[in-house]
């Protein structure tokens, strides 16, 4: 499981600082796919970057205990524009110690990019990039998939394909998904927590989390 130990994290904005976590200790248990709900500005993206390890906490420790944690899915920043999709895939499978041929075959099938896979990524539309990024992350075996708000990526058919891909791995991989909308997480998660005012509050079921979150939203309006 992924453990946060006495983690403090603040975010500097032009006016003052926002506290995302204040000396917080908690754990994301294995075997559960969890939604991390939070209003805009609560620090959800920072949270996911901290779990991924791309952003260090101000104080405290985050332990991944040897789990293979994905990069935050949902945006596709890691590609090199002048390299082809295939070359980018090979790079990612190399650094994550996966068999490049297997990964390539999976992405080829999943992304449906066809001959575009050999064209430079800079020629891709944003939808094509997203398909490549999503296919790639699904092709590499991660223990935990971090998802930063699955938004309007692709058409309905592609979305259901993504859902199925996650469902296929449900037994071996967990999903941690941040979102400000309770509706989107229902398809992927079975439990939830709320990030608010520097604290993480955990709930047994997703329904409970969503109820409390909706009440919170209402109280803020």
């Amino acid at each position: 499981m992924i453990v946060f130990e006495n983690v403090t994290k603040q975010y500097s904005l032009k006016r003052g600082r926002t506290t995302i976590l204040d000396d917080a200790t908690f754990a994301f248990p294995r075997g559960k796919s969890m939604a991390i709900l939070g209003i805009n500005g609560a620090g959800k993206s920072t949270m996911i970057r901290m779990i991924a390890g791309t952003e260090p906490p101000d104080r405290g420790r985050i332990r991944r205990n040897g789990l293979r944690v994905s990069w935050p899915l949902g945006f596709s920043g890691g590609f090199h524009g002048s390299l082809s999709g295939r070359q980018n895939i090979r790079f990612a499978s190399r650094i994550y110690d996966s068999d490049p041929r297997q990964v390539e075959a999976f992405v080829e099938d999943f992304s449906e990019l066809g001959k575009h896979l050999d064209a430079p990524v800079r020629t891709y539309s944003s939808g094509m990039r997203a398909r490549l990024a999503f296919g790639l992350s699904m092709a590499i075996d991660f223990d935990v998939y971090l998802v930063d708000e699955i938004t309007a990526v692709g058409d309905a058919r592609f979305k259901s394909k993504c859902q199925n891909a996650f469902a296929d791995r449900h037994d071996v991989s967990d999903v941690l998904m941040v979102s400000h909308s309770a509706d989107t997480v229902k398809k992927y998660c079975d439990s939830g927590c709320i990030l608010h005012d520097g604290e993480m509050q955990f709930f047994e079921t997703l329904e409970e989390a969503v109820d409390v979150y909706n009440a919170l939203l209402k109280s803020l309006q």
Partner: peptide, 9 residues
């Protein structure tokens, strides 16, 4: 910079 999307790098 783009590579930092991959936490391993």
């Amino acid at each position: 910079r783009a590579l930092l999307t991959f936490p391993i790098v």
